[in-house]
Design a protein around this nucleic acid. Sequence first.
RNA 1: GUGAAAGUAGCUCAGGUGGUUAGAGCACUGGAUUGUGGAUCCAGGGGUCGGGGGUUCGAGUCCCCUCUUUCACCCCA
Length: 445
Amino acid sequence: MKIQPVKGTRDFYPPEMAVRNWIIDGWKKVSVCNGFEEYDGPIFEYLKMFQIKSGDEIVEQLFSLQDRGGRDLALRPEITPTLARMVNQRINSLPKPIKWFSVPRLFRAERPQKGRLREFFQWNIDIIGLEDETGKALADAEVIFTTVDYLRDVGLSGADIQVKISSRRLLSAVLKRIGVPEERLDSLYILLDKKARLPKETFRELLNEQVLNPQHVERIEAFMETKKVSDVKKVVQLDDEINSALDEQGMLVDNLRRMGLSGYYCFDPSIVRGLAYYTGMIFEVHDMVGELRAIAGGGRYDNLLKEFGGPEISGTGMGMGDCVLEILLREKDLIDKQLPKKCLDFFVVCVPGTNFEQDSEDREPMGEDEVVRQTAKLREAGYRANFSYKFGSLGKQLREAYDQNAQKCIIIGEEFRDRQLVVKDIVTGEQELVDYDEFWSRLKA
RNA sequence: GUGAAAGUAGCUCAGGUGGUUAGAGCACUGGAUUGUGGAUCCAGGGGUCGGGGGUUCGAGUCCCCUCUUUCACCCCA
């Protein structure tokens, strides 16, 4: 019986593994460049940890298991709860702000579809522990900057992607001002989040079901269509709460401008983010065509640590999965030309059948033996070196050297009797006869 | 969890209305080629046609079930 890979999982053969490593290495490099430190946690946690902030409907989308001691566990569907747990555990001894990143392997028992699998990788960055408004606005901006920094680094421009920024704080202030009761906000968020995915009429119908007053519906729709922060006052009369949310948004935008991100972001109040624990700035990165689901998303969370039994400390963060990103990068043809090529420093070959004068009690030394000896010596000296197991014709061996993308080829032939090697440059095709001892002293220099 | 389409070699796909031993290109292995490279030519390996059941003298082809994939819905932490 043939065994198939499990639904929603991927096998990484060397070519796919090269892409995965390239993506993850890029994430890590940009994180470090932006001052983040790497952390990680276990791949499974107590099931109840994921129930705290998410509720039971999420549990159905978890891979859960019971260990032999009867503990209810789950494979992690996200790493934020682990982060909250880890930070809480050492909250008093960690210097603030905490700037951490991670690239966890995550699992969700959903029906797979485009850009969404059951096992994937997700880049997470978080900044935790800032107290004043200025610092928080800087942290919010830095999270967005780091996100764009990576996307820019792999060759995506403002013509390919856009960061859509909104604010939960502004949204709630405006909705309350319009007349939506506070207890209705959470369920309304879930609907508003779907706006982009629903036909206009359907969205309006659902909105009318939730908000009974037609005037309120009209004003909510008007707010969702707002293109500029300064236009908010045209939709609702400002109050203290709205003003303070607008100030926060203003500081964020100022910082983004200073960081040189003009052309990469826009204000879009229709960005709401699903369930989540967001309380301030929220953002999503989308492709310009708008065909794909969000490439990345994040925002400010003020109560997360507290919900996990910690102090009231605010944080801000971002998550970017590898699936949608790879689809977009492939569409833009940005992967193949940037993949680091596998390459060798040396490939050692011999003229088959060449033998040398006997210099010990061993059997007569052959070219093949010398290939193994010289390759091992090169490897010991720290070079990437390889040779052919098959010792076919010289042409075959050279072909293999070419296929393995070697820089130089060392040919061992009859001239080795006079302690000489032929060193051939694979790229230019040039070759020279080099004295054996000189070859090695040149390498060491 | 719901709905739709698809599944033939490692990959991309041929195989009118059921009919001999299921094919091609690419890829892979070997040879032509015993001191110099991606070419060319020749040969070879590789398939329970996703799996199971049924109809039939006979099923890759028709019917049912199931698995997987893709797409849409649900959901999106």
